[in-house]
Computed example of a mutant assay.
Amino acid sequence: MEGTLAKYIPEFAVSPAFELIVTHGVHLKIVNERATRHGDYRKALNGKHEITVNGSLNKYRFLVTLIHEIAHLVAFEKYGRNIKPHGNEWKHTFQQLMVPYIRPEIFPNQLLPLLARHFRNPSASSDTDTTLSLALKQFDAQKDNANYVFEIPYGTVFRIKNGKVFKKMAVRTKRFECIEISSGKTYLFNPNAEVEIIQM
């Protein structure tokens, strides 16, 4: 398992991450990419702790996702199952588990201050921290000219991964209002949502 882990996370994170997996009895499954989530944790009926992580993630996002999911397990065991999944107990646990990894042997220098800032008050997904998310995306395997909602002009029509088509309309605080063409409903998009521009 340690050898497998080495293919997915930075070299100096392998031993401590493997130790966490063993200590908490994690059954780790590396799965094909899911558009809706990077990973998840569940306690199976047989009592096993199952964590799945998308194998397509770059090594830095994979590591953050793995620790995120282990933090769910640890928080539930420490505080009980009635806590909110991304409440204060989970945030505190995630911070404690992640801090030892935020160092230059593991993450590139340009990510360190962004990670330090994010982990002062970690969110349910690193994707909601636009600055960190875009910085992490720089390490993805090259994708064909990704466009992000924040950078396309207002009025642009675009498609998302599930095939739905939208038009960018306005900005609301930190997110963008976009109208779904087929239904006329308004949806809010994170600035770093990847989209495919449709030429009209």
Rank of each mutant, 00 (worst) to 15 (best):
R61P: 00
D40E: 12
T36W: 02
L132S: 10
K174D: 13
P16G: 10
N109V: 08
W90D: 03
N109Q: 13
F166Q: 01
S125L: 04
A17C: 13
K164T: 10
P16T: 08
H49R: 11
L136P: 01
N32R: 15
I21P: 04
M1A: 12
I106P: 03
P191N: 09
N145A: 12
A6N: 05
L136R: 03
L136I: 02
K143A: 14
H86Q: 13
K164W: 06
F12Q: 08
G155A: 07
N192R: 03
Y41Q: 06
H86V: 11
V165F: 08
S123R: 15
N190K: 03
I102N: 13
E50I: 15
F76Y: 08
I197R: 03
A116V: 07
L111G: 06
F76V: 04
Q142R: 14
N109I: 11
S125I: 03
R34Q: 14
Y154T: 00
I67F: 08
N58Q: 14
V64A: 05
E105D: 15
E105M: 13
L114N: 06
P191R: 11
F158Y: 14
A17F: 01
F176G: 03
F150C: 08
Y79C: 02
I9H: 01
I9D: 03
S56I: 09
E105Y: 12
D129T: 05
K59G: 01
A17E: 02
I106F: 08
D40P: 00
L45H: 08
D129F: 09
Q110W: 00
E105R: 15
P10G: 01
V26Q: 03
S183L: 09
V14I: 14
V149L: 01
R103K: 15
S15Y: 09
I70A: 05
M1N: 12
I198L: 14
M1D: 09
N58L: 14
N162S: 15
H86D: 11
P153W: 07
N121Y: 09
E19A: 11
A124V: 09
L136H: 02
I152Y: 05
N192A: 14
K84M: 11
F139D: 11
I70K: 03
L28Q: 10
D140L: 06
F12M: 07
N32A: 15
E19Y: 10
F166K: 00
Q138C: 07
S123K: 15
H49M: 07
K78M: 12
E177G: 00
R81E: 03
S56N: 12
R159N: 11
A116G: 07
S183F: 08
I160A: 05
F176V: 11
V64W: 02
F176T: 12
